[in-house]
Simulated scan of single mutants.
Amino acid sequence: MSRTVFLSGSAGTGKTTVLRLGHHEKLTTWGLTAAIDLDQLYFMVDPHWDLPYDDARTALVLRQSVSLAESFVEAGYENILIAGNAIHDAVDLNPVIPHFLRLGRVFHFSLDPSEEAVLRRTANDPHRSAPHLTNELHFMRTRLSPWSASIDNSALTPLETLEKIAHLAHTGAGEIHGPLVDS
């Protein structure tokens, strides 16, 4: 049975870095694993990030992730990692949850490293400002939902983060069985 894992967190928490782990690293850690970066799907409709986030565009991107996940499952992939900062909200996820549940088990994890870890990871990126990153991290913490398993990956490498995700999914942490309710 396949597993779909939603991986949420603010900018600089390590979502994309986990997705970019090599095929061999993913295979030996967790089995045949595909990665869907929602930012890449957003780029297809807004390559310069000119548009503000809106519900219709988020819905479009999430529907596309369903199609991609279906293709990966049909090709024999055991795990589908889907990462983005816009997937922490029940309102956005609920329309696609039934589709993913038809593919197999579904999980949600939120990466929540320390502020220091986020700033350290993004220190060499001139496109990321420390105040913006800090504000987004604190905002995302106010949005953590009880249906998401939180992972403090401050001291974890990307591979160790994937290992933690695989372990937690194996234990059933963060598993979604139906519609989500935000608190």
Rank of each mutant, 00 (worst) to 15 (best):
L101G: 14
L101N: 15
R102S: 15
R102P: 13
L103N: 06
L103T: 04
L103K: 09
R105F: 05
R105I: 03
R105D: 13
R105Y: 07
V106L: 12
V106C: 09
F107A: 02
H108A: 10
H108D: 04
H108Q: 07
H108S: 09
H108M: 02
H108F: 00
F109K: 00
F109R: 00
F109T: 02
S110E: 02
L111W: 08
L111G: 12
L111D: 11
L111R: 10
L111P: 11
D112M: 12
S114P: 07
S114C: 09
S114M: 07
S114Y: 05
E115H: 00
E115R: 03
E115I: 06
E115A: 00
E116G: 04
E116Q: 11
A117C: 08
V118D: 00
L119T: 01
R120M: 07
R120D: 06
R121W: 00
R121I: 02
T122I: 03
T122Q: 00
A123H: 02
A123P: 03
N124S: 08
N124G: 06
D125V: 05
D125K: 01
D125Y: 00
P126H: 06
P126W: 00
P126R: 05
H127K: 07
R128A: 12
R128P: 10
S129H: 04
S129Y: 01
A130W: 03
P131T: 10
P131G: 05
P131H: 09
H132M: 11
H132F: 11
L133G: 02
T134I: 07
T134M: 08
T134P: 05
T134F: 04
N135G: 00
N135R: 10
E136L: 12
H138E: 15
H138I: 12
F139W: 15
F139K: 13
M140A: 12
M140I: 08
R141N: 12
R141K: 12
R141G: 11
R141S: 10
T142Y: 06
T142N: 09
R143N: 13
R143F: 11
R143C: 14
R143W: 11
L144Q: 04
L144R: 08
L144S: 02
S145L: 08
S145R: 12
P146C: 06
W147A: 01
S148R: 06
S148G: 12
S148F: 01
A149C: 13
A149E: 12
S150G: 13
S150I: 11
I151T: 15
I151E: 15
I151M: 14
I151Y: 12
I151V: 14
D152S: 08
D152V: 04
N153S: 15
N153L: 14
S154E: 13
A155M: 09
A155H: 05
A155E: 13
A155I: 03
T157K: 03
T157S: 12
P158L: 09
L159N: 08
L159Y: 03
E160L: 08
E160R: 10
E160P: 06
E160V: 02
T161S: 13
T161W: 14
T161F: 12
L162H: 10
L162K: 09
L162C: 08
